[in-house]
Design a protein around this nucleic acid. Sequence first.
DNA 1: ACGTAAACCTAACTTTGTTAGGTCATCCGA
DNA 2: TCGGATGACCTAACAAAGTTAGGTTTACGT
Lengths: 192, 192
Amino acid sequence: MTDRRARRHEATRQEILSATWQLARTKGLTGWSLREVAQAVDMRAPSLYGYFDSKDAIYDAMFAQGYQQLLEHLGGIPTDGHPREVLRRSAHAFFDFYVADSARHQLLFLRVVPGFEPSVESYALAQEAVDQLRALFAAIGIDRRESVDLWTALLSGLASQQVSNDPGGDRWARLIDPAVEMFLASELASAG
Amino acid sequence: MTDRRARRHEATRQEILSATWQLARTKGLTGWSLREVAQAVDMRAPSLYGYFDSKDAIYDAMFAQGYQQLLEHLGGIPTDGHPREVLRRSAHAFFDFYVADSARHQLLFLRVVPGFEPSVESYALAQEAVDQLRALFAAIGIDRRESVDLWTALLSGLASQQVSNDPGGDRWARLIDPAVEMFLASELASAG
DNA sequence: ACGTAAACCTAACTTTGTTAGGTCATCCGA
DNA sequence: TCGGATGACCTAACAAAGTTAGGTTTACGT
């Protein structure tokens, strides 16, 4: 097979991405340099250009990878049971995903990297995640766009506050269940 | 008076900060260079060091200024009338403040600038804003910390989503009033 | 009016992303 | 099996970034 080299190439690409995630987690989403990444994979900085066109291309690959992870996360949520339980599960899944990696959180949900715009292919993954979330809500009878928007705002707000103002703690994590109740009561009231 | 020079110095400091805000708004919070700032105030980059110790010191001054503006914003909210009206006013005031300047939003509420930590003096201003918000809530009979935390999460979430996913639009802005109702209903239910 | 210190400059150092161009190994076709 | 080609990596070097050193001019306080 001709792809012996292609497989090796792809493996190295993943190795580079993995090292970059590591650096982004420890030094901040934009706090790393190509030379550091190169050093981590035992190369020199210019060699990285054999695998990515630019630093922004690395961000783009990370963006895509992050949304793939989110899709897996979302896919793992059982949609059976009482709507309250489904909502609760999805809330915790969301929150955990956000908080688990604040660099990823910034990359996927906040426009933080100056000049970086995701490519159309990567953005399609983001769209897919939104669709999947909408499907999850539809499965429990919530189908108004406003409701889903309010939900995402609520959850991303809780996660942002947790990460920014009480990293490592649970001050906002403890508010998830009350927030679910609040949201659910409001939905029941306005659904008619 | 001995401060003729001191006043001029302070004026130049403000001029630099103002030019930096402008750049941050157009090119992103971290998308500007000292040389660009210098050019905007008709200087060379090293001259800025007569006014700020470092680029991070500029961020710190902006951080302080941003929270001063927030404090003014909060102070302008009338606390009389029905709690619903007070909440609504404060919600819109918050949201508008967030959305009016997304660079400021990122600087004040998200930890976005790699390596930057606000100085103790600047952080005290942030604390003051939190206290003032708590006082506003106490004035309308809401004094549980959890309630205020949930409120800030909700509002900052709405604003973040608006800025990140629908800049210039009103997709999340329209959810403010429903969010207020949702929050209020939940408060009334759990206040006993 | 004069000495001093503030205000500003140029030159330069380090680190950043990036490009140019070279070297060596490895794979494919004859 | 062997040569040409291509891939993988390197060093050297660029421009732009934050920052420091050190000098010159301006203008204030005594």
